[in-house]
């Protein structure tokens, strides 16, 4: 029989949230996020019987510093749930099983929602803002403001729902925002891309309007070629070689 976890003091919640921002601070190939999880969950473990450096605290901290991987923004779900489980006195075996089970879902959901959705969408929004002639400060403000609204909301939500639901938090991952969100964000990103790319290219070209058609044509052909060669070459890496050749040709011709 496990106890109900205590209500977390605000100071502890804030400490956990701030530490979550550094959850990847010691990311490495041996433990991945493991130590970051222990670092983020540590303020809550001080509430265990015996307090900081008590036997329960040390056993829990040792458990939490083992191998773990997840999307960094959704790591809060795990941190909240693990803090709740430790404070509720769940068995070490259940906690270990939960740690193993939630790595995959927290990684794949976060990757689809954030890295393949929210980040490119916000990036394209900023490119569109530039294309519409916003000032440098305006473009930076639009990008950082919109992106971090989603970023911080996700972190706060994860920690809150994780602590509230404990080891039963898996059901929270079925929320429509996480389930259907990536598709909606991808559609918005697609629309934004269509608007932003021509405007951004025009904005960078500035007064050089006479070569604009050539630039658009070359970019379109290049995009088709890269899409056809999907996975076989990386565009940015190939661009290093092409730019090096262009620079060399310009200097020595």
């Amino acid at each position: 029989m496990t106890a109900v976890p205590p209500r977390l003091p605000w100071g502890t919640r804030i400490a956990m949230l701030v530490r979550l921002l550094a959850v990847q601070g010691s990311w490495n190939y041996e433990m991945m996020l493991g130590n970051g999880i222990a670092f983020a969950v540590e303020p809550a473990l001080r509430l265990l019987p015996g307090g900081k450096n008590g036997e329960a605290y040390r056993a829990a901290l040792a458990r939490q510093s083992g191998y773990f991987n997840a999307h960094p923004y959704l790591a809060g779900v795990a941190v909240g749930a693990l803090a709740s489980a430790e404070l509720a006195g769940e068995s070490p075996e259940r906690i270990e099983r939960f740690r193993t089970a939630c790595c995959g879902p927290l990684g794949s959901v976060g990757d689809r929602l954030v890295w393949a959705g929210w980040l490119p969408a916000c990036s394209l929004l900023a490119l569109a803002a530039f294309g519409f002639g916003l000032s440098p400060a305006g473009v930076v403000f639009v990008f950082l403001g919109v992106y971090n609204l989603g970023h911080l909301a996700l972190r706060v939500w994860g920690l809150t729902v994780g602590y509230r639901d404990g080891l039963r938090v898996a059901s929270a991952l079925a929320t429509p925002v996480l389930r259907l969100g990536p598709a909606h964000v991808a559609r918005a990103a697609a629309l934004l891309a269509g608007i932003a790319l021509p405007l951004a290219v025009r904005g960078v070209m500035g007064p050089a309007l006479e070569v604009m058609e050539l630039v658009f044509g070359a970019a379109a052909l290049g995009a088709v070629a890269l899409t056809r060669l999907h996975g076989r070459i990386e565009g940015w890496r190939s661009s290093i070689v092409l730019l090096a050749a262009f620079i060399l040709f310009s200097v020595v011709r």
């Binding site: 891309a193 790319l197 290219v201 960078v204 070209m205 050539l214 630039v215 658009f216 070359a218 970019a219 379109a220 052909l221 290049g222 995009a223 088709v224 070629a225 890269l226 899409t227 565009g235 940015w236 661009s239 092409l242 730019l243």
Partner: peptide, 10 residues
């Protein structure tokens, strides 16, 4: 810009 546009669009 043509290189960047191609990479970005792809």
């Amino acid at each position: 810009v043509a290189l960047a546009g191609a990479v970005g669009a792809a």
